[in-house]
Structure formats: C-alpha cells, structure tokens
Design a protein around this nucleic acid. Sequence first.
RNA 1: GGCGGCGUAGCCAAGUGGUAAGGCAGAGGUCUGCAAAACCUUUAUUCAGCGGUUCAAAUCCGCUCGCCGCCUCCA
Length: 491
Amino acid sequence: MALRVYNTLSGEKETFVPLTPGKAGMYVCGVTVYDYCHIGHARANVVFDIIYRYLAYAGYDVTYVRNYTDIDDKIINRAIKEGVDYRTIADRYIEAFDEDMARLGLAKPTVEPKATDHIGGIIGIIETLIAKGHAYESEGDVYYAVDTFPEYLKLSKRNLEDMQAGARVEIGEKKRNPMDFALWKGSKPGEPWWNSPWGQGRPGWHIECSAMSMEFLGKTFDFHGGGKDLVFPHHENEIAQSEGANGCQFVRYWLHNGFVNINSEKMSKSLGNFFTIREVLDKFDPETLRFFILSAHYRSPIDFSDQNLDDAQSGLERIYSCLAALDALLLKTEPTTAPDDSLTPAAADLQEKADQLVPRFVEAMDDDFNSAQALGVLFETVRSTNRFLAETGAPSPAALSLAARIRQLFSELGSVLGLFGSGPAEWLAAVQAAKTGQIDIQPEDIERLIVERAEARKAKDFKRGDEIRDLLLEKGIQLLDSAQGTTWKAK
RNA sequence: GGCGGCGUAGCCAAGUGGUAAGGCAGAGGUCUGCAAAACCUUUAUUCAGCGGUUCAAAUCCGCUCGCCGCCUCCA
C-alpha cells in the first residue's frame, strides 16, 4: 500500500516517493496578513493540516513550513489608510490568524517564518538570478525576465503568447516584457524599506516563498501546497525563481485545494458573499466546520451554506452520540462474570469492522487524502457500534474489551483528522448550549411547564399534557421523556 | 478568445473498467397513553443527454447541453 497524490504539475495521481527516505518536507503558502481570514483560508489550512497529520501518521518525519507574508502592497495600503506603521497591521493580523487557527484545532507547523525575517535570503536569490541573467534591474526595481526561463507556465499549462495577447496585462514602462514580474520594488517615500544592492526597497510578492522554503527545506523538497488560485501566478513564479536560481527541481509534488463557494459562486468581497472565520465560528462549532470541510475531497469545490453546515453538524452529532454511549458503557459498567464469553452476532460484526477500520481508513487516505471516504468508513463503524450497543445489556468481558477497542480506534483515527478530540458528552452539551442560547424562553419557565405536564399526565389528562408539549415545541424546545423523567433540549 | 474542472437519489458526497460507500432529509419498525428523542431497517436497475470502444463503462473515446474556475490581488 502506498500513498498516491495528485500532482498539479503532472496532472495525475502519482505514488509518493520521498526525497529522503522516511522524511517529508512540506511548504504551504500561508497568508498575507492585512485582514481577517475568511473561510477559504480555513479550508486551505484545515486541508493541509490533515495532510500534515496523515503524513506523520503514515510514519514520515515531516517538516512542515507555513509562512506569514508580512510585507506586501496590501499591508502597506492598509497601514496608510489607518495611519499606522505597516508593522502594526502585520502583527495584528498575525495574531488574529493564530487565534483563528487555534480555534480550528490546527496542529502547529514545524516552522512559521515571516518574510521580513528573511530579507537577506531574498536579496541573495535575486543577486543569483541577476548573475545568471534571469533578472534585471530597472530604476530601483528588479524584475524577473520570464522569457529566460523556457519552462515558465509549466505548472498552469498556459503559453506566453496567449497570456500576452490578453488585454488585461498592462505594459509596465520599467519592464522589458509585460509578463515579467517584480522581485524587488524600490520604496516610495513613507513606505517601509530595507537596504539592497539596488537601493532602498522591499521584496515583491512570490520571492519570499522561494527564500523561506529554501532556508528550511532546501533547494528541492517534497510537497508545496496552497489554494488553486495560487497556481498562477504565485507558484508559477516561485518555480521560475527557485529553479532559475538553483538550477534544479524545486518541488516534487504540487498540491492545490479547491475553493469554497457561496451558493455555488466563488466567495469574493465584491459580491458581498464573504465570511470571516470569526463570523462563522460565532454561529457554528469549530469542529463542525472542520468536519464539513473534510466531508468533501480537498480538490473539489465545496458550497458553504447554513443548510450544509447544519447537515454536517447532524452527522458529527451522530458520531459523538455513539462515542458518548461507548464512554457511558465503559465507565459505568462492571463486566459480568458470565461463563459464556462468546460474541453475539452484532458483536461479531463489530469485531470485523474493528479489524478492518484502520486498513480501510488508510486505504482511503492513501488515495490522495480522500477524507470523505475515510469518514464514510467511520460512519459504517458507528452503525455497527450502535447495533452492538443496542443489544448489549450486561456486557461480557469480551464485549467490554471490544467496546474499549472501538473507542480507542476512534480517538486514534480522529486525531489524524483533527476530530473527536473533545469529550463526547461535553461536546454534545456545548452544542446544545449554543442552540439554547438562541431560544426566547427562560429555562425556569420550561421547568415549570414540565412539572405541570407531568402532573397532568399523572392525572391522565393527556390533552393538557400534549398542549404543553406542543407549546414548547413551537418555541423550539424538544421534550425528552425517559424512565428517569423528562428533560429538554433546544431543537 | 486560451486553459482547466464539474454534472451521481430531495439535498450533500465517495466511487476513474467488473456490476452504485457514507451523511442529511424522508418512510417503516422498536419504544410510548399518543408522540418526540434515540436506535434499527429502508430509500438510485442507475450515474446530464446521444453515439462509440469493450465480454464488461458512472468510470475510456467523440459529440451535444448545462454549470463553474483561472487567465488581475486572492486559500
């Protein structure tokens, strides 16, 4: 069994062969820190989080680098608009990014470098590119000459002639070719700057990723990831820079995640269909968002909507309910000393599911990180577990040990997906509490009505009892009758 | 215009040659005074349409229709 990954460069699924046996180097384009992150960032980061986790689970010693681009036109523009230093903006949104990612339960990358800590490396690469004839200085700027790199556009599979024919490419006066891109930009008055052989200035977009990836992963490394929209121009330009400077292959496997759509359209500020991670997490549990993201393959577009998030939450509740039931059985139950320790049919089925769980999960994830299929395998196990729990009264030692094994497997595989890390009972209670916050009736009133209903029912006045039940249901309160009495939850 | 992707049940979504995973919703059952909740069971002779290749196609090829993305900053 081997990991196969879809490589944007070849357009095919390929068997992963690490550059160095047993190790995996992975660079993911982080964020340009000029604003709060939106759910598209959430998807990209969650997707690469589970790729990172899975590579580690599969036994690789992974070095995961995710950068902050903390110097850029957009940051400068925002700083000017607010009348503050660019650093204020960058630091504010670095902090916000870290908060958001922590709430989403992301594992920390091995290194999280900042572009401004690597100006020296950036200048070094630019000097090499100039020395090799790939770049030229022009009035304090330095540009990459794309026609000196024959393989330019090999990732996005376009051709220069068509691109140049496009009306939207403006001919910059300082550029020799309209497709050339900036490696270094001379600073205008009031802008942040660093000294360089070409005067005071700052790096262009793209070059920082070449510098930081080389610093931490070397000239050639295994995985480079990012959103699909980074294929051109960002990653294309990184290839030109790194391969142009180093004369060797830059990245072995290029991975790109699909977009998040809103009502089937790309999310964008101009359309006004834009959600930040913070806004979404005010309404939905972070794990629900993660579960939603993982319920589709990472390269497919996903459609973000309240309905789809609600559906995802229902699915996740199903799993957590099952885990809560397992926990209850394991915590409260003493094994019987029944001499008959054989497994019932449901237990035998669950035993088989348990045996197959890891192999099937691995098979799904080995197939280009197919988390949707992996979740399907987990759901099948949930059903078997529920069936088993339903018929297990006083469990035999064998049944208890099977239950414990299933519980352990969910924790183990859940940690690969970044799911099920919460205590099931606590998670279910928290989701419940969040729903309760949205109802407009006081819990004391609910309790009072429940008592009144119980008395009515005791007196066989079912009409009055049902009235109360319907009244509460209208308010979004679901009554739960059981042998122990009546409880309620928000619907 | 150039390049790329997608179209699987009411909705979401796996499946890229061997006879349609899974989730949500719905229906039936257990339970209940009746319900709800929970759990169980069940739900596509068929994969946008039409042709073709093959013993065999949702999966490969061609055409048609529909939707979307990139080509400008973007996860």
